[in-house]
Nucleic acid binder design. Structure first.
Lengths: 353, 353
DNA sequence: TGTAAACGGTAAATCGATTTTTTGCTGTTG
DNA sequence: CAACAGCAAAAAATCGATTTACCGTTTACA
């Protein structure tokens, strides 16, 4: 029973030592599980710990070692389900190993990303899980390399010559989306994305395009990307439709794009899947309860997180060797937002706004 | 220009000191901005810092003070937009003050909540922003009290006798929802929520009920709550509708409830707002792009975060006095999911499943 | 018998900073 | 010229742990 009455100063290892009538070193050994301590003394230490409500100060404990029992996680944002789940998973995995996860949001800024990384380096974290804003070749990865930090790159990456990488197999998933759409008879498909995230966008785009063309060489694939943010994407999309383009399906390479597409459909009074089909990369809870339910590619968040942590701790423990690049399989959920072209009541696709 | 070649050991304050030809204490003073240092020596210190690429180790720096420049944040989950935004905001505000935010998810468990809190106490954080799983009277708040921690409670709280609290003005927002629904002629309304989160659920429910009854004393308000998780809520809702109950509107007191309601509407083939109207507490990005757009209560995340941090740092800096309980105003976004009863094509509300 | 290892423990060094105390020096005053 | 004030800087203590070095004893083995 902890009887710590004064909330002022917490008991230190020396308080425990004097209560137990041994030295601080002995207390440290007992608590570290060293077996060369006389059982009687060990018991006295445990009693003192109990009586004082003593707990090791993790920061003080980390002072002497070069790498601290802290793992840094840098995500582009916290607002989406994907990264929220990712942080939750990473936190649990770090905890299991006795580490503390310190998460930070780069807010989709490469400048901030590097600043955060520098701060984590100051903290002398044992390792970093970095989900880069753009890809594996940004300034943040360079910083990690230059400073000899150990880390693993996830999500918007493919492979790297210095760090292990783990990401969803975007290309394979996109190929599957292509199979489904072309299989349903779509021959004019619009793909939207953010070009900034070069690594994954290119993989998704190429995976989709090559599979679609392989199945139907005459399929027409239009691509709209925006360099920086999502708003230019919206206006490009508006222009595209405004010029009378009428694809029968849209494949969005990112969640925000799916939202933009839906809102543009709304503006024009188009309904899924009658007027146009929609598939988005990244699933969200709401997608299965709306009408229509939105077809989506589900990323294996748990697997990515656990593989990333496995690889990271292997390196933290000193493993050497060439970096590995893992691609975890996605699941494609076909839902009501996808239909066959021409089967809906408004197949002409007229602008009803 | 930092020329740190060896990624092995980072330069310490002693390295800087010897390079500058002064003592470590002088370096510390210069870096802390103490003015009683000879300008010449200060310059030499700055030069050495520059040459070595020296940066203060924040953990070592914190060792000597009782409260460390770390703020803990405990959220029930990271997966929702609300808490994702909250963490992002809190992180920025902590950073502005030179503190590091360490966020953890209690995963909707009060047991885990207390464990995390104990760990943060071990870390000797300067303060904690706690968004309790249930309310201000849980074991976590007791722990904070018993150990003399400084903290602020947010979100699922109303007021406390030991800690400052900040939350959305759920009652006022719910009253406004009542005004809107009753104003549109709804006289049989179902309210759904999780009873576990007693504080806010009761406030929302009472705010809604009293306003609705004030406007129309004969309005019928049914309430379905679940004690623990959201799944029992789903089956209760299914039973309720299965028994032939046909409210003309549903007000969900939480985001997950809104999703459950939508999915049950789907199951039965009901459309908003023709067959039934829906308003949910908590807004989400997707709610404005789906068809219909879902009416929602928007919580003032930024204001809650910034008020919480203001109050917290006031306490960290030693402010005393009775705790304050802040309620920040919400915004109610009426969207297409709300209509007038009887105006839709399917006003009979028949079960078309 | 002599060297060595095992044992159980303690004192002291260490980690990297900050803060307090001391020291050394200059200059002023009685 | 001794005494003292003022100042800048160094030295030492501190924070709370871990780890190394070491010290007698006792047992093991060549």
């Amino acid at each position: 029973m902890a009887q710590q009455e004064s909330p002022q100063r917490r008991p230190s290892i020396h308080d425990v030592a004097s209560h137990a009538g041994v030295s601080a070193a002995t207390v440290s050994k007992v608590l570290a599980g060293v077996t060369t301590v006389k059982p009687e003394n060990a018991q006295r230490v445990f009693d003192a710990v109990e009586r004082l409500g003593y707990r090791v100060d993790p920061l003080a404990s980390d002072m002497r070692r070069a790498k601290r029992r802290i793992i840094g996680a840098i995500m582009p944002e916290f607002e989406s389900e994907f990264f929220g789940q990712m942080v939750t998973e990473l936190e649990g995995l770090a905890e299991q190993r006795g580490y503390t996860l310190v998460a930070a949001s780069s807010r989709e800024s490469e400048v901030r990303e590097k600043e955060i990384l520098a701060r984590m380096h100051d903290w002398r974290v044992a390792g970093v899980v970095l989900a880069p804003v753009r890809n594996e070749h940004g300034p943040a990865a360079d910083f990690m390399k230059a400073n000899g930090m150990t880390g693993v790159l996830i999500d918007r990456v493919l492979s790297d010559d210095a760090f292990d990488t783990v990401s969803a197999d975007s290309a394979a998933a996109s190929a599957e989306v292509a199979r489904m759409l072309v299989g349903k008879g779509h021959s004019h498909i619009l793909v939207i994305g953010l070009a900034e995230q070069a690594a994954t966008v290119r993989a998704r785009l190429e995976g989709f395009r090559s599979q679609a063309l392989a199945l139907n060489p005459s399929v027409r694939i239009d691509v709209i990307t925006s360099e920086v943010s999502v708003e230019p994407l919206r206006s490009s999309l508006r222009d595209y439709f405004g010029q009378g383009e009428r694809p029968t399906a849209v494949y969005s390479l990112l969640l925000k794009g799916t939202l933009v597409a839906l809102s543009e459909f709304r503006r024009r009074g188009w309904h899924c899947p009658d007027d146009i089909s929609l598939v988005g990369f990244d699933d969200a809870e709401w997608m299965q309860v709306t009408w229509p339910a939105i077809a989506a590619v589900v990323q294996p968040v748990r697997r990515i997180a656990s593989e990333a942590m496995n690889l990271l701790f292997r390196r933290v423990e000193g493993a050497v060797g060439p970096p590995t690049a893992r691609l975890e399989p996605c699941q494609v959920l076909m839902r009501e937002s996808v239909g066959s072209p021409g089967s809906g009541p408004h197949s002409g696709g007229g602008d009803r706004q």
